[in-house]
Simulated scan of single mutants.
Amino acid sequence: MSSGIQNKVVVITGASSGLGAETARHLAKAGAHVVLGARRIERLETLARELRLNPEAIQKTDVTDRSQVKSLVERAVTLHGRVDVLLNNAGLMPSSMLDKLKVDEWDRMIDVNIKGVLYGIAAVLPHMQKQMSGQIINVSSVAGHKVGPGGSVYAGTKWAVRAISEGLRQEVKPWNIRTTIVSPGAVATELISTITDSDIAAGMAKTYERAIPPSSFARVVEFAISQPEDVDINEVLFRPTSQVY
């Protein structure tokens, strides 16, 4: 696998909108072969037409279902013979104060934000070990570095992503596999639309008034992938210049 983006096979979860869709655009333009998964297949179909992808390069994927994540990765291998990069991008952020007892939302965040990442790792690791190369990019958050009121469970999931990623980094050295954590601050996505706690939603909306575009995230991912094989960009934390926390 050569350095750069050209001809790399990149699997992206949560690719139907926001960070995932924009990253797919950037990487496809740079010459990557993208294979896209998300729950909203209609949006994936629209994106595939925009990018002129093979219709087989998209697949309906719920990352809480291990078999679906494995099937997405197998689709990439069937189409291209390998998988060079996995971007574990799917995530939810229904933040709330703990005393609101939104336990169903806690469960959903744990299933998507933690288990979804683990299922992605489980799906690609055997292929990357066989290839003796690859890169796994996991999406954490500024909330994976700082915890605030209303963000306890979401932050917990993102701290978990960082811990899992660091353990993975140390374990995969014998196979020349690279690992990257991307921790964005306020980037314009649909994440805040998942917040059902009205007080938290109002505060988050104010924070996101100066959100930067998803292209900022896509450029970070592109930078990490494009490095030579002997360079492993392990973590990038970035925020809008105006963001204090």
Rank of each mutant, 00 (worst) to 15 (best):
E222Q: 11
V187H: 03
L191Q: 09
S71W: 06
M128L: 13
I192F: 08
L191W: 13
T194A: 13
A21N: 05
F217G: 03
Q129W: 02
E42G: 14
R52V: 08
V11Y: 06
A48W: 03
Q129N: 02
T46D: 08
Y245I: 12
E166F: 09
S198E: 13
A32N: 00
S215E: 11
Q170T: 11
L72C: 03
Y154H: 04
S216Y: 11
G148N: 06
P214S: 13
P240Y: 09
Q68E: 15
T196K: 14
I177G: 00
A155M: 07
P94C: 07
L27M: 10
V221T: 07
A57W: 00
N54F: 03
A218Y: 05
K173I: 13
G150K: 12
S133M: 00
V182E: 02
E42S: 14
M132P: 09
R178I: 04
V103S: 02
S242V: 10
I233K: 06
G151A: 06
A211D: 00
R210T: 12
S133Q: 05
S165D: 09
T13W: 02
H80T: 01
I114G: 01
G150R: 07
I181M: 04
T61D: 01
L92E: 05
L47N: 07
G151K: 05
L101A: 14
L44W: 02
T241Y: 11
Q170K: 14
L168Q: 02
K206M: 14
R25H: 08
R108P: 01
T179M: 12
Q131M: 15
T179G: 13
K102Y: 12
V85P: 07
S242K: 03
A202R: 06
A160R: 00
L92P: 08
N7S: 10
S198H: 08
E229H: 10
T23Y: 10
R219L: 01
I225R: 00
L87A: 03
L125S: 05
A224E: 07
I212R: 12
R40W: 05
A24D: 01
E166H: 04
I5N: 10
G167L: 01
G14N: 12
H145V: 00
V244L: 15
G185I: 03
G20K: 05
L237H: 04
V231A: 14
L87G: 02
L47R: 08
R178D: 10
E22S: 09
G116N: 13
N88C: 07
K146M: 15
L92G: 03
Q6V: 14
L125A: 13
S140N: 08
K158R: 06
K146Q: 14
L237W: 01
V147Q: 07
E171Q: 10
R162A: 09
P149K: 12
S215F: 00
Q243W: 09
D99F: 14
